[in-house]
């Protein structure tokens, strides 16, 4: 990479790393892991910088590297996503305290999602990507985005004990664009 490319990369990191770190945090659920994930993703981007022709699509490229890297780490760390002996207690009321309880339960449930489902939720509900954009980042079809998101939402309702909460009532396939 020449000096001009290095400067462009530095400018990109300075402008985008705070936002990308937030996404990394939502993907990992841990500040430390998020920094590690983002640094790895940006280091890979740095090495590939000269080959990335469409600089407008950089965010998408970095997001994709983060999702793939996170999936790869998840496999190596041998996390068993199916072992869920202790479920959080569901929130029952509708006041401010219960809203916090609801958020805590949702956050816990989010952490128990399989990596790709979690990534899909982050891309769709935090990054506000359309189904087509999320499909591009994840490298899957739009249909897979719909089904993965649907499964993630269903699991969030089930594992967070929110199935009966009127605030989260939703048809099983009620994924909105």
């Amino acid at each position: 990479m020449d000096e001009q490319g290095r400067e462009a990369f530095r400018a990109y990191v300075a402008a985008r790393s705070p936002a990308l770190l937030r996404t990394a945090y939502l993907l990992t659920g841990s500040r430390v892991d998020a920094e590690d994930l983002l640094q790895t993703a940006l280091a890979k981007t740095y090495l590939a910088w000269d080959r990335i022709r469409d600089r407008e699509a950089l965010d998408g490229y970095v997001r994709r590297v983060m999702v793939n890297t996170q999936t790869s780490w998840w496999r190596r760390r041998r996390v068993d996503e199916y072992a869920t002996d202790d479920l959080p207690e569901p929130g029952a009321g509708h006041d401010a305290t219960d809203a916090l309880v609801l958020h805590d339960a949702l956050w816990t449930a989010l952490g128990e999602l399989p990596t790709r489902q979690r990534a899909m939720v982050v891309l769709r509900y935090y990054e506000d990507l359309s189904e087509a954009e999320a499909a591009q980042v994840m490298g899957v079809s739009v249909g897979t985005v719909k089904s993965t998101t649907s499964r993630a939402l269903a699991k969030l309702r089930d594992t967070s004990g929110l199935r009966d909460d009127p605030r989260t009532a939703l048809p099983y396939d009620g994924v909105t664009a």
Binding site: H103, Y125, Y126, T176
Partner: peptide, 15 residues
Amino acid sequence: TPLDDELRSLLHSRA
């Protein structure tokens, strides 16, 4: 949907 709203609210507040 309500769950959409809760999720967006949660993710943004945590991020």
